[in-house]
Design a protein around this nucleic acid. Structure first.
Lengths: 257, 257
DNA sequence: CGCCATCTTGAGGTCTATCAATTTCAGTGG
DNA sequence: CCACTGAAATTGATAGACCTCAAGATGGCG
């Protein structure tokens, strides 16, 4: 049993959990490991691919093309579950890589299955988690398909800004522009130029890899960024009459329904 | 109660179902409606958005940008559940539109919730369903991000070819090239030119909207298409010792031009 | 037959990739 | 302290992919 479980905390933002659900979830995080930046947590082609919860650091999922090009599909930050998009697959298609030194807890499909079969509540929360990840990917499609370089980058930075819950509009990007390029489907050269463009427009200031967004609203307008897709809304999947609804505010450590 | 439930059939491809699970799933399809081509089943901004199962015809999910551009995210064919990617959202962000005349069964988040809370087995199958939809979107990202026009189109056609389970490599596309363009993040003019390119390369023959792929292997090579992401693999989410495994063979469907 | 949506084709311009050269900067070691 | 090093970022030049606009061709259908 882990003294502090990341996903329990995360899920408590969505809805209150029973003692039993808490215990089940914490079980997934019993094995805390550390991995260095650049470490491949899961490689493409791997049978019975593992899952991980990410306790600290940054990681990403990557898909490789035969010609050696790579596309970064998702960037994981604190408390996310990695590998969920491949539940039910015999064989892994995407790679998981640590972008920084990370702490993560590996678990198996079997572990996941055990949790799911024991709590329909947790199953629902996992579905919602998957749906949120899906909406991140949808925004990625929108960016790559419809936005030009600088807009893509602006959108990306705003997403990081909101997901890290930075309150001073200052974000730290712990990886290089090539990673951003592979995530946004553009060349690293063009990423650099897009940075310049945002700076020239007064929408961005940089100090090494620490970035400052002086006018988030203007940048959001410029990038057609709408934070709604990042919001937690547990709505009617759990109707009010069947399950107590949490206060829409963030819930502090202890739950009291 | 419906005499024949599409999703039950669909889910039986994944795993055997109990009587009770079958009944639960069929419940979702008790309300069979017909909608004309072009009908908006669900619009962006809608509160408590509904879900649908698609019994016949083609539909798609669409995301609109402030400047009026649209991106088609997913094309739905027979027996798919539409709206799953927005479970847990208070408000719909994507639109659902019928591409042809369709038969579909609307149901509410509440209906879905009832099913989920009564069967952890069905919950698991729904998660797998979501993961498969996710992998379709991943391939879309790969296409838009890394493949050039003709490759994108080839990949798209092969995906249709496999999803419709056409055995004679003949597919019928019941919508115009503008739809394809919006799905692949390119202009309709470029779609037309990409069609020409595939024809010139001998990878495609057309007769109106009926297409013939004379050399699927060559086209797959050309488009870096790998059908694995379309495969049904229920693997270890339901370990063999806990639940009997279905035959991995694809279930034949009837194709009539 | 004529209408309309759709598809095709051409021309010019924009965006982005690629290649290559240069600069920056943090480490490293003399 | 300063030169050396290598990764990363920037900048310039060129080429290719793709978009947009516009005109013309095609084909289904009343």
């Amino acid at each position: 049993m882990v003294d502090e479980s990341c996903i329990v905390e995360k899920f408590l933002e969505l809805a209150p959990l029973s003692e039993e659900d808490t215990r089940l979830l914490a079980e997934l995080e019993k094995d805390v490991q550390t991995y260095p930046a650049g470490h491949i947590l899961k490689s493409a082609g791997q049978k019975n691919p593992p899952f991980f919860t990410l306790r600290s650091g940054w990681a990403c999922s990557v898909r490789l093309l035969p010609d050696g090009q790579r596309q970064i599909l998702h960037i994981f930050i604190n408390s996310q579950i990695m590998g969920l998009s491949e539940v039910g697959a015999d064989c892994s298609e995407t790679e998981l890589m640590a972008l920084t030194d990370i702490e993560a807890c590996p678990f198996t499909a079997r572990d996941l299955h055990d949790v799911l079969s024991q709590s329909s509540r947790v199953s629902q929360l996992l579905m919602i988690t998957m749906a949120r990840e899906h909406s991140l990917l949808i925004e990625r499609v929108m960016s790559i398909g419809k936005r030009r370089g600088a807009e893509r980058l602006g959108h990306f930075l705003l997403e990081i800004r909101f997901r890290t819950k930075s309150r001073n509009n200052r974000i730290h990007i712990p990886f290089n522009q090539t990673v951003i390029a592979d995530a946004l489907g553009m060349s690293s050269v063009h990423v650099s130029r897009s940075f310049s463009e945002l700076k020239k427009l007064g929408l961005l200031q940089t100090d090494g890899r620490t970035l400052f967004l002086p006018d988030v609203e203007a940048l959001a307008e410029f990038s057609s960024f709408c934070p709604r897709y990042l919001e937690v809304g547990s709505a009617d999947l759990m109707p009010a009459d069947s399950i107590p609804r949490p206060d829409p505010q963030l819930i502090p450590g202890d739950d009291a329904p």
